[in-house]
Design a protein around this nucleic acid. Structure first.
Lengths: 194, 194
DNA sequence: GTCTATACCGTGATAGAC
DNA sequence: GTCTATCACGGTATAGAC
C-alpha cells in the first residue's frame, strides 16, 4: 500500500495547486508568495520544480490545448456529414473543457502580456478556425439556417461553450454529461419551443 | 466654436484611456506607469484626477452596471408576455454591452481580488438572477422547450451574450444591430435548420 | 494641472546551508 | 527537496516645486 498523500511535489502536482490559485486570483494577481502559501512550501522551493512562474502557465496551457486539438483527431470529428461532425466536436469540446476545467479556464483567460500568452492565443485562433471550417461545410450542406453568418455563429458557439468555465463547479448541480448535452441542444435547436 | 481636442484630462476622459489599457493588459497586469504612458502624462498627474488605480476600476464598473440594470427598467422589460420580455432584455443587454463595450468588458473580467471587484461580482449575480426569473416565467407559460434547465439555460444565454466582449471590435465586420439580432435568433431558435 | 523626486513595500528569482 | 537570507527591480502612492 502506497502513501495516500505525497509530501513532496512533482512539477505536475505543483502545477495542479498553482493552476487553482491562478484561476482564483488571475495569473497577474498571483505572486510566488501566494503560490508558496497554497503549496505549503517556501517560494524558493518552488524554483526547485519549475524555472519560473511563466513555466507553470505554459505547462497548464499546453495541457488544455492538447486536449482540445485531440478532439479534432477523433473519428467522430473526421468522418460523416459535416453537421454531425460539428455536433460531435461541440459535445467533445464541452466534455474536454469540463474534464480539464482548470487548465482550459486558464487558457481562455490569457491576455497576451507574455510570449507564452501570445503563443496560447495564436493556437486558440487556429483551433477556432478549424471549427469555423466545419460550420462552413455544414452550411454548404444546407444543414444550418440559411441566414447564419458563419464567423459570427462560430464565435457565439464558442462563447456558449467557453462560458462554462465561468460557473461550472464539479459535483454541484448539473453533471458533466448533462452540461455537454444542454450545450449541444441549445446551440443547435435553440431555447424556444419550435 | 469649442476646442476639438482637450489637452487636459477630466476624471471621465482619463477613465476612457485607462479602461482601454486595463482591457489590453488586464487590470492586475496594468501598472500606473503603463497608464501614464498611455495618457501621455506622468504617474503622479494621474493622482490629481483620481485617488487610486482601484477608483478607475470602480468608475468603469459602475458605468457598466448602470447600463445593464437600466435595461430592466425599460417598458419592453416590464410589460407583456414573459418570452417577449426575455427576448427584449436579451437584445437590449447585447446592445448595451456593445454600446458600452470597454466598460462591460472590464465588469465581466473582475476576479474578486479587491473590495471593488467583490462588489461588482455581487451586483452581477443580482442581475443574472433577475433574468433567470424571466426565464422561469417564460417556461411556466410553455414558451421554452420543456426540457430546458432554467439555471443552466440562463448561464448559457449569458455565456453567449457576454462572449461578445471577447471578439467584437466596432467598425470591423458585423454591425451592432446585426450582432444583437444574431444573438437573439441563435439563442432562441438555434443554429440548425428546423 | 503637471512635473521630479522619493518613500516604502512586494515582486520574481538566486545563493548557499542543511 | 526544502529552507533562510538576500538581491535588484518595479509597484502604488505622496511631497512639494513650478
Amino acid at each position: 500500500m502506497t502513501m495516500a498523500k505525497r509530501d513532496t511535489y512533482t512539477p505536475d502536482s505543483l502545477l495542479a495547486v498553482a493552476v487553482e490559485v491562478f484561476i482564483e486570483r488571475g495569473y497577474d494577481g498571483t505572486s510566488m508568495e501566494h503560490l508558496s502559501r497554497a503549496a505549503g512550501i517556501s517560494k524558493s522551493s518552488i524554483y526547485h520544480h519549475v524555472r519560473s512562474k511563466e513555466e507553470l502557465l505554459r505547462r497548464a496551457i499546453s495541457r488544455a490545448l492538447d486536449g482540445l486539438f485531440g478532439v479534432l483527431e477523433e473519428p467522430g470529428a473526421t468522418g460523416g456529414r459535416a453537421i454531425e461532425r460539428l455536433e460531435y466536436v461541440t459535445r467533445r469540446v464541452a466534455e474536454v473543457l469540463l474534464d480539464e476545467l482548470p487548465y482550459v479556464t486558464l487558457l481562455l483567460r490569457v491576455r497576451g502580456n507574455t510570449d507564452t500568452e501570445r503563443w496560447a492565443m495564436e493556437r486558440r485562433r487556429e483551433f477556432d478556425h478549424r471549427v469555423a471550417e466545419l460550420l462552413m461545410e455544414a452550411a454548404a450542406d444546407g444543414d444550418l439556417r440559411p441566414d447564419v453568418d458563419i464567423p459570427l455563429a462560430t464565435r457565439l458557439l464558442f462563447g456558449m461553450i467557453n462560458s462554462i468555465v465561468e460557473w461550472y463547479r464539479p459535483g454541484r448541480g448539473t453533471s458533466r454529461d448533462e452540461v455537454a448535452e444542454a450545450v449541444v441542444r441549445t446551440a443547435f435547436a435553440g431555447l424556444r419551443t419550435s
